[in-house]
Design a binder for these strands. Structure first.
Lengths: 191, 191
DNA sequence: CCTACCGATCGGTAGG
DNA sequence: CCTACCGATCGGTAGG
């Protein structure tokens, strides 16, 4: 496990935590494993972080905020509702291909996040899901119940990308994101 | 936490483990919490189980086997490929509404399962995913790559049900399963 | 079903 | 960046 790293930084600790949390989960990862991956002893980690929980909080909070920023940028200035849904799905899918570890951690370890961060993150995720539901309601030939079902289904479909996507696979992240945003329109009854 | 249970059984221990593993994850749940939920002391659990890992193994192995049995029963005797896909999706979605805790644990804690059970379970899950991909390939106007993408997307869409479904909600498990199997056909390009 | 207890490991601190 | 060490808790056993 020990690497020949000469300098460790907060960013390096976060990167090692990303890999291990994504593989084994927050509670399944010991700080000693993160230290070993960096080639240092456990207490030395505390030169680059405050607590294990802070690693999780930073990863989950940053990712959730970026998901929301992605969404807002994707739909800005677009009037056609179907096109708004396509773009919103496309950036969400794309993020799950390009930030696989972050996506897996957010979807698996949110219950391990302590308040107040947990409440803030859940609120932002609810806002994101609600925005999707609104788009589907506005655009589609769909009742309110179905819009909720479809929104959850579309979002979770995108999450699946983080489970199997590989950069060196036959399809690029962009190609996968295009496919899934097309699927989203079909689920919403728009294609 | 302590309940007024008068008799504890292996089934009761498993049920308590289902609830707690689904809420906090395998590594996030202590045996002392399972014992407290049953109103007994931790060592008394060992009258009803062999080890914590066995609880996880039984839950994950049984669930995975039932998913495969559901699939085989759903497509048996059906010739039309689109109808096979619809029925396969319907039973998979239905299980995620009626066995929410089991579904959440399988999808979250499979990495915490030790070999050889882990290998067996992953092989069976692969077989299930491959069967879906084959159905989509046979039925749809879709190339091989897209069939793989669509299969993963459809399966994960069904998993989302376990995250939000409630028995006392506005839609029955059957209604939700019907909706999602319709979505599957749309994603596969068949509706 | 319990009390008493085990070695191992956890996240984190002291102090340099 | 380290060694040495802390109290707490983990899964599990002994023995009744």
């Amino acid at each position: 496990m020990a690497e020949a790293k000469t300098t460790v930084s907060p960013a390096a600790v976060r990167d090692a935590a990303l890999t291990l949390f994504a593989e084994r989960g927050y509670h399944g990862t010991a700080l000693s494993q993160i230290a070993a991956a960096l080639g240092i002893r456990t207490p030395s980690l505390y030169n680059h972080m405050r607590a294990k929980q802070d690693l999780l909080r930073d990863i989950v909070a940053d990712t959730t905020e970026q998901v929301w920023a992605d969404y807002e940028a994707a739909v800005a200035g677009i009037d056609d509702v179907a096109e708004r849904l396509r773009r919103a799905t496309r950036v969400y899918a794309l993020r799950h291909a390009t930030h696989r570890r972050e996506a897996l951690i957010v979807n698996r370890d949110i219950a391990s996040l302590e308040d107040p961060a947990r409440t803030t993150v859940l609120e932002l995720r609810r806002r994101h899901a609600h925005a999707f539901r609104s788009l589907i309601e506005q655009a589609g030939p769909t009742d309110e119940e179905s819009a909720t079902l479809a929104a959850f289904g579309i979002l979770e479909m995108c999450v699946s990308i983080a489970r199997w996507f590989h950069e060196d696979g036959p399809l690029s992240a962009e190609a996968v994101a295009d496919k899934y945003s097309e699927y989203a329109l079909r689920v919403a009854g728009l294609a």
